[in-house]
């Protein structure tokens, strides 16, 4: 079976796995614990692709009609 990267599809925005330091910074910026962030399953194809583990935070750069680019964070859960 031919493997492909979901992120190569134009409708899948860029997903970036944050380092623990970066993740900490995000949480501090918003003054929240990780559980207050939106969630994403570890089994999500994109999460698998970038090798995310439960507890990681993923940064997503989305195209936005109002702001050109909008940043979103999601906590990896199982």
């Amino acid at each position: 079976m031919k493997r492909f990267a979901v992120q190569d599809h134009e409708l899948v925005p860029e997903h970036i796995l944050l380092t623990p330091e970066e993740a900490q910074q995000v949480l501090e910026q918003y003054g929240v614990e990780a559980r207050y962030l939106p969630k994403i399953h570890v089994t999500d194809p994109v999460a698998e692709e970038i090798g995310a583990k439960v507890g990681d935070i993923i940064k997503i750069k989305r195209k936005s009609p109002t702001a050109k680019e909008s940043i979103f964070y999601r906590l990896v859960i199982d």
Binding site: Y30, G31, V32, Y36, L37, P38, R62, S64, T66, A67, S70, I71, F72, Y73
Partner: peptide
């Protein structure tokens, strides 16, 4: 006040209102 949209439990729904905060 930080521009985020949250629901009553404090869960973040949008990191910036309407994505551009306007």
């Amino acid at each position: 006040y930080d521009g985020t949209v949250r629901e009553t439990r404090g869960m973040i729904v949008q990191f910036k209102y309407g994505e551009d905060g306007v």
